[in-house]
């Protein structure tokens, strides 16, 4: 099965934000899938096994264009792209100065367009391409992170728009929307037994925080050659959180307990 997948897939895939967190897990998964993974990150410590890497601040378009050009010159056309890089900042609306929105417009949205423009000529020539945008469950709205939510909702709209733009050329554009994921950054900011973590976990229907490898699983699916008739879709990988916000009690006990006869 793995050999079949490698035969079908392979080739280069560009992953942004590859040094840590979800991006790192995506890269490692795609290497295991048989891809030649090219990475971009501001952090010059990529995961092992990449075929190519450029350290660059992707919020600076001119610098990022150069880095992309170097990767493409060295490795040829890239027919798969994972727009993963992104960040967030906790900020109540009352504290906003606009700076967070400006920063995230560059990092979460400008980077996606920049990378798309870089790889698009090769995809068009090959009449084949796979683009996966990493959005977020927060695209549906998130208090204390409205600027972040705006950029992820925008990326969801762009996913649908770009899917329509390029569908006739064999290029699919889909999105994966993570819920709360156990990245290194999350762990550093949220000790395992902190009240906030307990509240977050109990608010998820599956009662657990997701793992980065579970995001990589969805990304791998969309990148697969056989996912050729799927475009413009968003797959939430969130333990059911996208079903809607409920109080922890609203998730209910496991069914066996709920229907067990009283002693």
């Amino acid at each position: 099965m793995i050999q079949e997948r490698q035969a079908l897939n392979g080739g280069s895939v560009l992953v942004t934000g590859v040094a840590s967190g979800i991006g790192r897990s995506i890269a490692l998964r795609l290497i295991a899938d048989g891809y030649a993974v090219l990475g971009l990150d501001i952090d010059p410590s990529p995961p092992p096994g990449l075929a190519g890497f450029e350290a660059v601040d992707i919020t600076q378009p001119a610098e990022a264009r150069k880095a992309l050009a170097q990767l493409l010159a060295a490795h040829g056309a890239v027919l798969r792209l994972v727009n993963n890089v992104g960040s967030s900042r906790r900020e109540n609306v009352i504290d906003s100065s606009g700076d967070t929105q400006r920063w995230l417009n560059r990092l979460n949205l400008g980077s996606a367009l920049l990378c798309l423009q870089a790889v698009l000529p090769g995809m068009r020539e090959a009449r084949f391409g796979r683009v996966v945008n990493i959005t977020s469950r927060a695209a549906m709205g998130r208090e204390t992170r409205s600027a972040y939510s705006a950029t992820k909702s925008a990326l969801a709209s762009l996913t649908r728009s770009w899917a329509r733009d390029f569908a006739a050329e064999g290029i699919t554009v889909n999105a994966v929307g993570p819920g709360t994921i156990n990245t290194d950054l999350f762990s550093r900011n949220n000790p395992p037994n902190a009240p906030d973590v307990t509240r977050l976990r109990e608010g998820v229907p599956m009662r657990r925080i997701g793992e980065p490898e579970e995001i990589a699983q969805a990304v791998s699916f969309f990148l697969d050659t056989r996912s050729s008739y799927i475009t413009g879709q968003t797959l939430y990988v969130c333990g059911g959180l996208s079903l809607g916000a409920v109080s922890p009690a609203g998730n209910g006990p496991p069914l066996d307990d709920a229907i067990a006869p009283r002693p």
Binding site: M140, G141, S146, S149, A150, S157, L158
Partner: peptide, 17 residues
Amino acid sequence: AAAMGGLLGLARSWALE
């Protein structure tokens, strides 16, 4: 698409906040 999507995300977040 990006602008309208962004405003949608803002509106939904404002609703919560």
